[in-house]
Each structure stands twice: as C-alpha cells, then as structure tokens.
C-alpha cells in the first residue's frame, strides 16, 4: 500500500502565500549581498575622489531596506513559526 505523501501537493491560498514569503526571506541575504557589493563596481571618477557621502547614503539605504523587509517578514511569517513553516527544502 502506498504511503500518503508527507506534504500535500496543493496548499490553501494562505499557506501558499506564507511559503512564498519564506522563500523571499531565504533570498533576502542574497539580494543584500548583491546590493552591498554594487559599490565595488562603481569606478572612481577620473578627476576627483569618489563621493563617499553618496556611497555611504546608498549603503545605509540598502541596510535600512533590508531591515524593513526583514521586519515585515518577521511580522507576517515569523508569527506562525511552527505552523507549517517547516516545509521541505528548509
């Protein structure tokens, strides 16, 4: 007799949304890594030194954005940590 699958193939809309938000959470550090690495690609201007203030503003902006998204995810997904968050693929 075939055992029933451990995880259902189709989820209710709410659970589906949760799973996708968790996926976003998993992607967040990679997005952050990409954005934080961008200044490495900005060639310093020939004539004068690079604009450190602008780079700083950019980095703090990225930082703040990461914190905001993480806080949003924590509020929406983190609340029900043990409900069905332990899906496949950890």
């Amino acid at each position: 007799m075939a055992a029933p699958p451990r995880h259902p193939t189709f989820l209710a809309r709410r659970s589906y949304r949760r799973r996708r938000l968790v996926d976003l959470g998993r992607l967040l550090p990679f997005a952050g890594l990409f954005l934080c690495g961008l200044p490495m690609l900005w060639a310093p201007p020939e004539d004068h030194a690079r604009d450190l203030a602008a780079t700083g503003l950019y980095l703090f902006g990225v930082w703040g954005g990461l914190i905001a998204v993480a806080a949003f995810l924590a509020r929406t997904v983190g609340a029900g940590l043990d409900e069905d968050g332990e899906g496949p693929g950890r």
Binding site: G25, R26, L28, P29, L52, G56, A70
Partner: peptide, 21 residues
Amino acid sequence: SGLEFLTIYLGPTLVFVGWWL
C-alpha cells in the same frame, strides 16, 4: 579606511535577515 568599517556590520546583517537559511 573610509567606509570599509561597514563590512563588519553588513556581514552579520546579511546572516540575520537570512535567518531562515
């Protein structure tokens, strides 16, 4: 070293916002 000090805090930030991993 200018803004390089930020790396010391950006690294942990990435680990924490990606706590699922």
